[in-house]
Design a protein around this nucleic acid. Structure first.
Length: 880
RNA sequence: GCCCGCCUGGCGGAAUGGCAGACGCAGCGGACUUAAAAUCCGCAGCCCACAGGGCGUGGGGGUUCGAGUCCCCCGGCGGGCACCA
């Protein structure tokens, strides 16, 4: 950190945040300003503000500061607008990092997690957030995950859970399942061994059952960003098409046909091959009798399970030598390939290839010399000469070379093809979803145990509810690879609840997305001995404003929407959509710094100097050696471009940190944390304090009305005050916090101007100054809550209510109306002059005045005016 | 690769299809000070033949009396891609 940015003493009494901030935090707590009951009495409308709860990684980071500041502004603003606001906080506390800490540093995951929570809770408290801390919980509290197990049992009984096989990334050296992020270039991050795909029996939530409802529900979410809804709709991926059965020309073992899902049955006559995924039963059967096929399948298995890895890999295939018959063309047969770009999870795991009208099929066909036969003719193309080059033709056109479909458009041909498939028993129309069931099994210790027991006689037996919670054992050994729960000496050995014979506990734990899929509901009755109490969730849900990172746009939000539906189906909730309003914030970024030897340096290890030409140089403080200033990117520990919020709050106070984070840019965009920006925000807090204290001796007593006759500077200041109230209100309502900040700057400027004018102060101006300063203190309340209380207590000593308890100020409409307006005068859309007219001036007057302008006359050049456009209050445009 | 965004002065940004650059940061000039810091006042998109004019919202095209804003194409940057949270 740059020393020149340090606060330095001034002559005037300064706002001492280090004293004031803890004092006001204690006062809010003493008065219980932010506590709300589980079941409110209904005297005020409820408002539920929730920010995505943090993973307790160690310390809070700037992303948290931004997230929780945004939420706190909403919470405080809505409270002032008369709502009963619930604003809770908790911890998303299960997950891999705790296990990594255990393996790498020998700290027990629970100890590591709860210590981190204690640190981060203290940091959040220093931010002055208006939270109801009585509702706090961590998902690793047995009181939470025990209730999660109860929910699971309800879902299981309701048929919303099933067990099936799926593929995982397997590290053959560490003998463990790897997360996608642990697979780097196809190798395990710790062992470096090539990763293989392995099939495991796992638990799944049947989210696909709600595919249509989750899609339809998006239309009701009018306070969600469009792009999030688009992403979810694409993810759910409804597609209408056909399932087509292709008969193998000769059976392969028990296999006699291959089923394909296609959205383009209209292009069936353009078929040139059939391809199956490497995990497809046919590929397995082919591999069993053909070593080369087996080798190809094995190679595909080394690719990892992520869709990105599969789709970015070079398209490769293996011709099995098998052939299938065409459903419409008697005697025509096509080769069956195994292809690495066919996804087993989507459709039937098999496709028919029509290279002329699908880009991926085309690339595959070109690579392996397969025929390319166009069957859709673009409008205006000549059927005799039309040929496909490098690009498949995927748009609409007229079907040709296609027997009974010839001459139809694409849509009609689809219907005709499906009709024929159904008539001949070779297929049917089908709706297919991209959405897959949600696999929730994880072979890990630090998660919620899945409450089932495997019995050799009874099969899978749910743990009876009266035996919940299934608590994690504390004595676990992380020295061996694999799941510590699985090799714990005693934990998994239990009698079968049904037959009493020795049985085994499920040793898989839940995906941590399960934990975060219902925490919003648990906050309504956080100490209940059931997952949720109906009275509480019925009163508080849905969340009115949910705030978090765009990176959760799909999975977390979709899973939460599923959970709300599943909880409704099992009688826990009445709502289907858990989040009525959603706001997605941008990331916090910072420059990165790199020493000549390649070391990344933290911002406070670097000293920046600005040359006269504006260019910036950096040196390392410790060595005085030059440092390369890198690009601005997301704060990350690896690049060391992080700034510790604790240090910032220590140095500048929470209000400054909050103000800077709000003022820098629109909250949905990435913001750049800069030392200069924080220092500027700090100076502004001092300026507001100075403006207030300097004015105090000149102000009339609290409650003195502004004389109605006030004019001149007094009237100008009153207008500025009321314009600011209106503008800040509008900005806060629309999440334009940076604009709210700008409007508050303008009000401060207006107050300072009035102070200068106040050399000949009259009673009117003095009263207007009080009005302005009081409004200012209250308008900053949601953003800089401590300073707001401080200024308010200076202006209104002895006042019973805190800013946190006051209603929001109201703008006087009479003071908002403009008396005159400035109009732009354009000639042919180009600005030539501006004119000042009374607010309600009629068009004739406006045009006459506009055309009389010397500059306008010159621009008109004597040509006749063909058209006059007048947008009242805005612009006049003269067309010649 | 696929899906979704974003791009405006030196920088962050503002702007119901209607005066582009509000407000702030950095900068420059001045006042105050023994001096510095702090504070206060002022200047400031770029260019030119400077009472004026031209060019300007990533690049190219279009719609419109009028486009940062709407449409099409291209480029760059970012988020997600199902076991990171």
């Amino acid at each position: 950190m740059n020393d020149t940015a340090a606060p330095s003493p001034t002559a005037a009494p300064r706002h001492d945040f280090a004293v004031a901030e803890p004092r006001w935090q204690a006062e809010w707590e003493r008065r219980g300003c932010f506590a709300v009951p589980d079941v409110p009495d209904g005297s005020r409308p409820k408002y539920y503000v929730l920010e995505m709860f943090p993973y307790p990684s160690g310390k809070i980071h700037m992303g948290h500061v931004r997230n929780y500041t945004l939420g706190d502004v909403v919470a405080r603003y809505k409270r002032a607008r008369g709502f009963l606001v619930m604003h809770p906080m908790g911890w998303d506390a299960f997950g891999l990092p705790a296990e990594n800490a255990a393996r790498e540093r020998g700290i027990h995951p629970a100890k590591w997690t709860y210590e981190n929570i204690a640190t981060m809770r203290a940091e959040l408290k220093r931010m002055g957030l208006s939270l109801d801390w009585a509702r706090e919980f961590a998902t690793c509290d047995v009181a939470y995950y025990g209730q999660q197990q109860a929910l699971f049992l309800d879902f299981l009984a309701a048929g919303l859970v099933e067990r099936k096989e799926s593929w995982v990334n397997w590290d053959p050296v560490d003998q463990t399942v790897l997360a996608n992020e642990q697979v780097i270039d196809g190798r395990g991050w710790r062992s470096g061994a090539p990763v293989e795909k392995k099939k495991l029996s796992q638990w799944f939530f049947r989210i696909t059952r709600y595919a249509q409802e989750l899609l339809d529900g998006l239309a009701t979410l009018d306070r969600w960003p469009e792009r999030v809804k688009t992403m979810q709709a694409n993810w759910i991926g409804r597609s209408e098409g056909a399932r087509v059965r292709f008969r193998l020309t000769e059976p392969l073992g028990e296999l006699r046909e291959v089923e394909v899902f296609t959205t383009r049955p209209d292009t069936l006559f353009g078929m040139s091959f059939l391809a199956v995924a490497a995990e497809h039963p046919l590929a397995a059967a082919a591999a069993a009798r053909d070593p080369k096929a087996a080798a190809f399948v094995a190679e595909c298995r080394r690719m990892g399970t992520s869709e990105a890895a599969i789709e970015q890999a070079e398209k490769r295939g293996y011709d099995t030598g098998l052939r299938v018959a065409h459903p419409f063309v008697e005697g025509a047969t096509f080769p069956v390939w195994i292809a690495n770009f066919v996804l087993m999870e989507y459709g039937t795991g098999a496709i028919f290839g029509c290279p002329a009208h699908d880009q991926r099929d085309l690339e595959f066909a070109r690579k392996y010399g397969l025929p390319v036969r166009p069957v859709v003719l673009p409008p205006g193309a000549d059927p005799k000469t039309f040929a496909i080059g490098d690009a498949a033709y995927v748009d609409d056109g007229t079907i040709f070379n296609s027997g009974f479909m010839d001459g139809l458009g694409v849509a009609a041909a689809r219907r005709a093809a499906i009709e024929r498939l159904e008539a001949t028993g070779q297929g049917r129309g089908e709706i297919n979803w991209r959405l897959r069931d949600w696999g929730v099994s994880r072979q890990r210790y630090w998660g919620c145990p899945i409450p089932v027991i495997h019995c050799e006689s009874c099969g899978i037996v749910p743990v009876p509810k009266d035996q919940l919670p299934v608590a994690l054992p504390e004595d676990v050994d992380f020295s061996k690879p694999g799941n510590p729960l699985d090799h714990h000496p005693s934990w998994k050995h239990v009698p079968c609840p049904r037959c009493g014979r020795p049985a085994r506990r499920e040793t898989d734990t839940f995906d941590t997305f399960v934990d975060s899929s219902w925490y919003y509901a648990r906050f309504c009755s956080p100490r209940a001995k059931v997952p949720v109490t109906r009275a509480a969730v019925d009163a508080w849900l849905p969340v009115d404003q949910y705030i978090g990172g765009i990176e959760h746009a799909i999975l977390h939000l979709l899973y939460s929407r599923f959970f709300a539906r599943a909880m409704k189906a099992t009688g826990h909730l009445a709502v289907e959509e858990p989040f009525a309003g959603l706001f997605t914030q941008g990331m916090v970024t910072h420059e990165s710094y790199r020493a000549a030897d390649g070391r990344w340096l933290y911002p406070d290890e670097v000293e920046i100097t600005v040359a006269p030409d504006g260019s910036r140089q950096a040196i390392e403080k410790a060595t005085r050696a030059p440092v390369t200033i890198g690009r601005v990117e997301a704060m990350s520990k690896s690049k060391r471009n992080t700034v510790d919020p604790g240090a910032i709050i220590e140095r500048y106070g929470a209000d400054t940190a909050r103000w800077f984070i709000l003022s820098d840019n629109p909250p949905e965009r990435d913001m750049e944390w800069t030392e200069a920006g924080v220092a500027g925000a700090f100076r502004f807090t001092q300026r507001l304090h100075r403006l207030t204290t300097a004015a105090l001796p000149a102000l009339p007593p609290p409650g003195t009305p502004v004389p109605a006759t006030a004019d001149g500077p007094a009237r100008a200041l009153r207008r500025a005050t009321h314009r600011a109230i209106a503008a800040v209100t509008e900005a806060l309502e629309s999440f334009a916090f940076n604009v709210a900040v700008a409007r508050i700057h303008e009000l401060a400027n207006a107050i300072a101007e009035a102070e200068t004018a106040g050399a000949h102060a009259d009673a009117g101006l003095a009263a207007a100054r009080r009005e302005a300063l009081e409004a200012l203190a209250r308008l900053i309340g949601p953003m800089m809550p401590h300073l707001a209380e401080e200024l308010w207590s200076l202006l209104r000593p002895g006042e019973a209510r805190l800013v946190a308890e006051l209603p929001w100020p109201e703008a006087d409409p009479a003071l908002l109306k403009a008396e005159t307006v400035t109009l732009a005068v354009q000639v042919l859309g180009r600005l030539r002059a501006t004119i000042e007219v009374p607010a309600g001036a009629d068009e004739a007057t406006v045009f006459a005045l506009a055309e009389a302008q010397e500059n306008v006359q010159r621009a008109l050049g004597g040509k006749p005016i063909r058209k006059r456009i007048h947008v009242p209050g805005r612009v006049v445009n003269l067309v010649v």
